[in-house]
């Protein structure tokens, strides 16, 4: 299997990459890890005349904690970088765990967090946990940079708010006082399988009272979605198992899953109910796992 012809550029700066993208317009595509782009090119779904590689932008691989800003993850960090980063493991082990359970080892060594976001696939594993943690993303274009909430980035399957000449450079998780977070997925195999449904949650507990939470669902709608009605069930309430089940039922109700070869709508809804209840219980009782 061979790739169609293209002109390859590997600029040395984000600014240079943006101007190449601006110059070539829709004929150009960004190459980060390539696990999605090359796959689509092999299938003939995409045939960019120009490929702008981020391969030389090593600053975009950085993962660090900045006092006052929070956890900063470079968009080119690979899934295994996230899984093994001591900084992430210390702050939000839930992100490392989510990354560790993606795809398989070979793919995790090249697939990037930025690609997992920008491709905007409903079953992507990293957007739910990052959304649950209130992540912001930074987009850099020829005229400057802008920051937005990750949950506002997605418009539909393969559709986002990114402009053709913009590059996702980093993901920022501001300090928000969470006491726990987790991501649970269900796939048809333990490795190399897309999520049939997934749930990520973050919670801020004050004793038995839930003072804040976010629930984000994957493969539950055309875009990764917040389950706001389910969140409302728990907010400022004393948490009981019955209440967690009620939140699960609510999340299933507000989800909009599709029928596909991996699971029917009905099956996915029931998965969402169970996964939501279990994820909440885990984050409340075990912290960032």
């Amino acid at each position: 299997m061979y790739l169609p012809d293209f002109d390859y550029y590997a600029p040395d700066s984000v600014a240079e990459a943006c101007s190449l993208l601006a110059e070539h317009g829709p004929k150009a595509k960004i190459l980060a890890g390539g696990t999605d782009l090359l796959h689509k090119m092999k299938h003939g779904e995409l045939a960019p005349e120009v490929v702008v590689s981020l391969n030389n932008l090593n600053a975009l691989k950085e993962i660090r904690y900045e006092q006052g800003r929070g956890l900063i993850i470079g968009a080119r960090a690979t899934q295994n970088d996230l899984a093994t980063s001591p900084v992430i493991q210390e702050k939000y082990r839930s992100i490392s765990e989510a990354a560790h359970h993606m795809a398989n080892n070979q793919i995790r060594h090249i697939g990037t967090v930025g690609g997992n976001i920008v491709n905007a696939v409903p079953s992507a594993d990293l957007p739910p946990i990052l959304m649950a943690l209130g992540a912001l993303i930074q987009l850099v274009g020829p005229t400057g940079k802008r920051t937005m909430l990750l949950e506002e980035f997605f418009l539909g399957v393969h559709q986002t708010r990114i402009q053709g000449d913009e590059i996702l450079t980093e993901i920022i998780i501001p300090e928000q006082g969470f006491t726990g977070s987790t991501y649970i997925r269900f796939g048809l195999r333990r490795s190399g399988a897309l999520a049939v449904a997934s749930t990520a949650v973050s919670v801020t507990m004050d004793g038995e009272i839930c003072r804040g939470l976010r629930i984000a669902l994957g493969a539950a709608a055309p875009v990764p979605m917040r389950a706001r009605a389910a969140e409302a069930v728990l907010l400022n309430r004393k948490i009981t198992d019955e209440l967690l089940e009620e939140a699960g039922v609510q999340a299933a109700q507000e989800s909009r899953p599709r029928n596909s070869i991996r699971g029917s709508e009905e099956y996915r809804r029931d998965l969402i109910r169970v996964l939501t209840r279990r994820a909440l219980k885990k984050a409340i009782t075990e912290g960032h796992v």
Binding site: Y8, G34, T35, L38, H39, N105, Q106, H109, I110
Partner: peptide
């Protein structure tokens, strides 16, 4: 292995 890490060589451009 690329720098000791297993990768699928069908998903890597030679130039990279």
């Amino acid at each position: 292995l690329m720098d000791g890490k297993p990768v699928n060589s069908c998903m890597v451009l030679a130039v990279e």
